[in-house]
Design a protein around this nucleic acid. Structure first.
Lengths: 105, 105
DNA sequence: TGCATGTGTAATGTTTTTATTACAGGTGCA
DNA sequence: TGCACCTGTAATAAAAACATTACACATGCA
């Protein structure tokens, strides 16, 4: 994982709203509208947050048919453990796409 | 650590620039101007990033006198280990200052 | 048919973050 | 005195993130 990926992963959860969404989904599998009510935000905004969480792999969503035949989009949290420390960061930076020859200092 | 604090901590390192700064400081203690050259950015911008890193406790800085009597501001990285998973997030959300009684769902 | 419920997104506005430029100082030394 | 360093910050511009509103469309059911 390079520096851009690490930053993107962290950015995906560096938001109170998205942490709340994640915590809610950690408890319950919910479809978008139900989740929107639970966390008290508009669906449009929730979609934006879910898109970011899903892009980073923290949640997955899929369409499912309810008992009465309606298509519902259910999301669930993906279990993960993320450990960050200085060596992790240095390793990520070492992989990064900047020219590995600069300073004169 | 509540949800706001957790998000703020993550946000402090959720940036390629700041990760690069942290990795650089993990190797070397440097003063601001030297660091600016090393990571190739203006001091003004670097100050902004350092302020965020310091506010979250990832770096510490202090003035020191060089051998020839000039005041230099040295920064160094603070060792840390940050582990995040779903239980961590749920625990942080549980501590949060939102009214703990809402939905009817 | 009309209502309640759901998905999905475009357009737009607001706020925050990120970045640049330009100052105003200070030290040591040739 | 003038140059080469350094710290610190204000003003501003540019870009990205966040949030709201409004729409199009689909299903089941009274």
């Amino acid at each position: 994982m390079n520096i851009e990926q690490l930053a993107a992963t962290l950015a995906a959860i560096a938001s109170p709203q998205r942490l709340r969404i994640l915590a809610t989904l950690a408890d319950d599998r919910l479809h978008v509208s139900a989740l929107a009510r639970r966390v008290d935000m508009s669906r449009a905004l929730l979609y934006m947050h879910l898109t970011k969480l899903e892009a980073a792999g923290f949640v997955v969503g899929g369409l499912e048919l309810s008992a009465d035949g309606k298509a519902l989009k259910y999301f669930e949290a993906t279990p993960f453990v993320l450990t960050i420390d200085l060596p992790t960061i240095s390793a990520a930076v070492a992989l990064s796409p900047i020219s590995p020859a600069d300073e004169t200092d």
